[in-house]
Nucleic acid binder design. Structure first.
Length: 257
DNA sequence: AATACCACCAACCGCGTATTG
DNA sequence: CCAATACGCGGTTGGTGGTAT
């Protein structure tokens, strides 16, 4: 159940819009390191860990949204066969996708495939035969992979990586092509607060704001900056921790190390 | 129309690693 | 060099919305 806790105690569970905006604001000021510091100074009743996660998996403007493209799916399969469950490593090869996202995708895919295979091979087919000859038979690397995955008794989507599959030449080209895609925002559910809404709001505020003061030369979009700083100076009582506790640095290095 | 089931994904947790004093 | 702290990663859980019965 969702229970919104106020006061002293740490908040857990889903983030509110207000928390998101607050976090974006502080990340843009202090950078996306120093999470404990941000957690403290922002007044968010969240751990640094939680703040980082929210940023990395959801708020970061460089994230893609929406379903995996077939190309991305292919890449995931390929890299997973290479590296196993090294999600963050795989994620680095798919710009705009997070390790969490890829992990979830993989899990879902494996479950789906496991069920399919079960259905196909269930009535008295000798499934054990396929398990002995490691990467079996099909021309479909994905299918082979699935079979391999499924024959493992533990967590069915969990592999240690196969440390093989040397035939992935030209991967860099593929990745580069992927990177050509700009940030895609979601065509997500109506009426639900989403990142779209936030970014839209930020856009709206763009023309209205104080111009950027700090050049942290991050990947953060200018409009966020405008929005952030604009609002930063207008904090109400509950959000004043920062303004009373800190002075702005001359450069980002002082804050990001 | 109700409800049972499933897929998706956000968020938490534990632990290993890196950094800092 | 060591201890403390912060960060990052992978595994897992639980809520929500959609679909099937």
């Amino acid at each position: 159940m969702i229970h919104i806790e106020e006061d002293e105690s740490l908040r857990k569970g889903p983030w509110t819009e207000h928390e998101d905006v607050q976090l974006i604001l502080y990340v843009n000021v202090f950078g996306d390191r120093r999470w404990d510091f941000i957690a403290q100074v922002s007044g968010l009743k969240r751990t640094g860990k939680s703040c980082r996660l929210r940023w990395v998996n959801y708020l970061n403007p460089s994230l893609k949204r929406g379903r995996m493209t077939p190309h991305e799916e292919k890449l995931i399969l390929e890299y997973h066969s290479k590296w196993g469950n090294r999600w963050s490593r795989i994620a680095r090869k798919l710009p705009g996708r997070t390790d969490n996202e890829i992990k979830n995708y993989w899990r879902t895919l494996m479950r789906k495939k496991a069920q399919e295979n079960k259905r196909i091979s269930s009535p008295s087919s000798s499934f054990s035969n396929t398990s002995s000859s490691s990467s079996s038979c099909t021309n479909d690397p994905m299918a082979d992979l699935i079979v391999m995955e499924e024959t493992k008794e533990r967590s069915f989507y969990d592999t240690g990586g196969i440390e093989m599959v040397p035939q992935f030449s030209g991967l860099e080209n593929i990745i580069n092509n992927t990177m050509k895609h700009s940030i895609v925002t979601s065509e997500e559910k109506d009426g639900i607060y989403s990142m779209d809404d936030i970014w839209k709001d930020l856009d709206l505020l763009e023309n209205d704001g104080v111009k950027q003061v700090f050049d942290f030369s991050s990947e953060v979009t200018p409009q966020i900056w405008d929005y952030s700083l604009n609002n930063f100076w207008m904090m109400d009582g509950g959000q004043q921790e920062l303004s009373t506790n800190m002075f702005f640095p001359a450069t980002s290095e002082q804050w990001t190390g």
